[in-house]
Design a protein around this nucleic acid. Structure first.
Lengths: 148, 148
DNA sequence: TAAGGATTCTTCGTATTTGAGCATTAAAAT
DNA sequence: ATTTTAATGCTCAAATACGAAGAATCCTTA
């Protein structure tokens, strides 16, 4: 029987916590939550995305996304419009204000990232990325355990 | 500049999601949330724990723990008592009902774990554990970024 | 072209996260 | 024996997680 501390999801959670300890202070300073920053970061790179793509990229469920986006919009960081081809789709993008803020904050976060690399070494990071990529691809086969 | 998809915290999050996809259906069947199960699992192994220890072990903040424990208590899964030596401490433990349920559910989850191992291979798993353990130990040095 | 099915986004209810602050109890300093 | 300081657990508020269900739109097939 596997020990509690050996649980893989828990280990991943704790590892993530360890890394977030580097970034959290920065986000706290600019009054953005983790999820809000994930959205902004994804939009900064992809320019315009529909709601579902954003949800997949950022690992945020649709119901959560709705609220997050509307709050970001209230703060003047994002804007949205309906797609012309498909009226169901909502296209989301950053405002000028958000772009400016993004450029200002990025170096701070990259410095923290640098700090992680120094402590953990680049070799370990490379290896870890490879293993995580593989892990992310696994999928359960037996959809079962449904008692219907 | 690092690409969005390369973010370490995000990668850890996605990897965790991938593994949780194996376990989630089981937890859904028994109507327990991830966090509730983490608590039960930790208590099953450590018998009796105080609130803070439980929070650290399960990676759950104290404010969250309060609610989770009281809901578990309502469902008859946990019980608590004050420590005799230190009246500040609350000691939490599982009920008979929880122990029974735990023994019944554990094999189901272990089967899923087995499935993960088969897809990912034991070698990768071992290596990943090692890297995650190292990563969990890193700590930010510059407490800074406080604008006071 | 109307009915059925699928996709996208939203609303809803409950559970949890996260930072901040408060009350109680212990231990250390005066 | 007080006062200070620290530790533990809790409350509060705003934001998010997550499963279920609803509304709008698009697609397919009869």
């Amino acid at each position: 029987m596997l020990k509690y501390e050996e649980s893989l999801p828990l280990k991943l959670l704790k590892a993530r916590e360890a890394t977030m300890n580097f970034f959290r202070p920065v986000l706290l300073d600019i009054s953005l939550t983790e999820q809000q920053w994930r959205i902004i970061r994804a939009l900064a790179e992809h320019k315009e995305l529909e709601s579902k793509q954003l949800a997949d990229l950022c690992c945020i469920l649709s119901p959560s996304l709705t609220g997050i986006i509307s709050r970001l919009e209230q703060q003047g960081y994002t804007q949205r419009r309906r797609s012309n081809e498909d009226q169901r789709r909502i296209l989301i993008s950053l405002t000028e204000k958000a772009e400016t803020m993004f450029k200002r904050v990025t170096p701070l976060l990259e410095a923290r990232y640098q700090e992680i690399t120094e402590q953990y070494t680049q070799e370990n990071l490379d290896l870890l990325y490879e293993l995580l990529n593989k892990l992310t691809q696994i999928k359960p086969v037996s959809e079962g355990s449904k008692t219907e």
